[in-house]
Amino acid sequence: MNHFEWKSAVKSNIKILKLIGLWPQGDESYKKNFYTLYSATILIVFVCGHNFFQTINLFILDDFESFTATIFVTLSCIGSVLKAYSVMQNMHTLKRIFVTIRDEMFLPKNQEQIMLITPAIKIWRIIFRKLCLVLVSVPNFGWSQQ
């Protein structure tokens, strides 16, 4: 059963993490290379930069409602920075887990076992896509209406 691709369940997650600079190549953690520079640039410019400019928005100091909305958005973005930092700090452990799962012991042994896990993988893909769509589009739509 070497043909079973267990990463198919989290393939879209890994693609997104690679795109935003949170998934180094191979089974390694961050090293001094171009991807680490790319990751740092993406996080500093888009995440930290957004927080910085959101915080120093001086045009709303006379409007209390806009000011509180800005603080809410800034605190939400700071949570994103903390999540990204924790993923980066624990990348070595996460990659070790992925290497362990690739072990022969965790692969399905026969076609019956593959048939047992296939529906769960399909449901995971559907839930992830729908949930991601809702969790990303609804707040963006709500924030654009303000």
Rank of each mutant, 00 (worst) to 15 (best):
I14N: 05
K15E: 09
K15D: 06
K15V: 10
L17Y: 09
L19E: 07
L22P: 01
L22D: 00
P24R: 06
Q25R: 13
D27N: 11
E28Y: 02
S29K: 00
S29V: 01
Y30N: 01
Y35I: 10
Y35Q: 07
T36S: 14
T36D: 03
L37S: 10
L37H: 04
Y38D: 15
A40R: 15
A40G: 00
T41W: 07
T41G: 11
T41R: 11
I42A: 11
I42Y: 07
L43E: 04
C48T: 13
H50Y: 14
N51K: 09
N51Q: 13
F52R: 01
F52D: 00
Q54N: 13
T55A: 15
I56Y: 08
N57T: 05
L58R: 00
L58A: 07
F59S: 07
I60N: 06
L61F: 12
D63C: 06
I71S: 14
F72I: 00
F72E: 05
T74W: 02
L75K: 12
L75V: 11
C77E: 04
L82G: 02
K83E: 05
A84I: 12
A84M: 09
S86Q: 00
S86T: 04
V87N: 02
H92E: 04
T93F: 11
T93W: 09
T93Y: 10
L94N: 08
L94M: 10
R96I: 01
I97Q: 10
F98L: 14
V99P: 03
T100S: 10
D103Q: 07
D103R: 06
E104V: 09
F106W: 02
L107Y: 13
P108R: 14
K109C: 01
K109D: 00
N110V: 09
N110K: 15
Q111W: 15
E112S: 14
